[in-house]
Design a protein around this nucleic acid. Structure first.
Lengths: 185, 185
DNA sequence: CCGTAAAGAGAATCAATGTTCTGCTTACTA
DNA sequence: TAGTAAGCAGAACATTGATTCTCTTTACGG
């Protein structure tokens, strides 16, 4: 059967999703038309609908895209040999924030307040990120502060909560600055 | 000249703005039509356009409405005789969060990422709120911790920053829960 | 190397919605 | 208390934009 090979198909999907993220970052979720994404991706209407059921589907893909990338950044630190202390972890996370993605991230939060599908994605991703931060903090407590693992896990919970909260607040601040940042491709 | 007295006019404006906030809370900024607000407010299309230039204007009014109400809550604590310590302040602020307004608040953040007018409102309000928290923390440092005023103001800055950040994060969590909460009038 | 069925382009459709317009009603002023 | 200009209702309009349809092109399997 002569359809696109899976790899190529996935490539097109991310090509479209990335174009969508750029558009969303510029104009917001609802104010980007399919035509905008068409233009930004260099493809056509029909092509986009061949890869995504509809616009909502694309929004969800964009949400996953952005959140996934952020989760990835956290995961790296959790696996480090010498885990950073919470303050250091936080400032590294903050340093890794990309303004364009911050904007789409905040837009995603907004969408999550009314769209259950997006809400599930955001909640799930947030939980995963918090778990990773928790893991990282636990590792730090064990390796650097020499806590017992059990006690470390317990103590890590409120710390992870705070780190996440401060991180999200910073994301918000970043999204607020530089409202129309030209993201030339 | 037979126009509505200023008080009555202002009443209609808030009546419309409050209806708008309820609609936004349910369906989001872009997915509420003027017709929805018409129905929710019990008025008509023409009437709404007699009080607000257009939908963007209404969104800005709603943003001010929600943010103002939050700022008000903070202001009370700052003026208290026995200022609460930062932790106490934070938990009181959190306790005062209303889910419906939290949702609209988050939607407002999202709008601010692309609409300069809304952005200005949000940034301005956030700055004002942070200033109030700063004032409250300073008062606490002076009255309870017996710092000198100058030093207190300095020490209060990072604390106020954290309190605001944690508060905003909590607002986000609240907005995430209970996606479709029926707000019967 | 072909044949085929999907990918892709772009016009056409069709619903939704912001805004305006036309009268009727009412609240204020004189 | 009467006149008037605004408030207000609701239909009409125009535009926008998501989705669908048709046709052409292309990439893969045999």
């Amino acid at each position: 059967m002569p359809r696109l090979t899976d790899a190529r198909k996935e490539l097109r999907r991310t090509q479209i999703a990335e174009a969508a993220v750029r558009c969303f970052s510029r104009n917001g979720l609802e104010r980007t038309s399919i035509a905008d994404i068409t233009a930004e991706s260099g493809l056509s209407t029909g092509s986009i609908y061949a890869h995504y059921r509809n616009k909502a589907d694309l929004v969800q893909a964009a949400a996953r895209e952005v959140l996934d990338k952020r989760a990835e950044a956290i995961g790296q630190y959790a696996a480090a040999d010498v885990p950073p202390d919470p303050d250091e972890l936080l400032s590294r996370l903050i340093a890794a924030i990309d303004p364009a993605e911050a904007r789409v991230g905040v837009q995603t939060w907004s969408e999550a307040t009314t769209d259950p599908a997006v809400r599930d994605i955001v909640v799930d991703m947030t939980d995963r990120m918090r778990a990773m931060v928790h893991e990282c903090v636990t590792a730090w407590l064990v390796k650097v502060e020499h806590d017992e693992p059990a006690r470390a896990g317990e103590r890590a919970t409120p710390i992870a909560h705070r780190v996440m909260a401060l991180y999200q607040a910073e994301l918000l601040y970043t999204a607020m600055q530089t409202p129309t940042e030209g993201t030339a491709s």
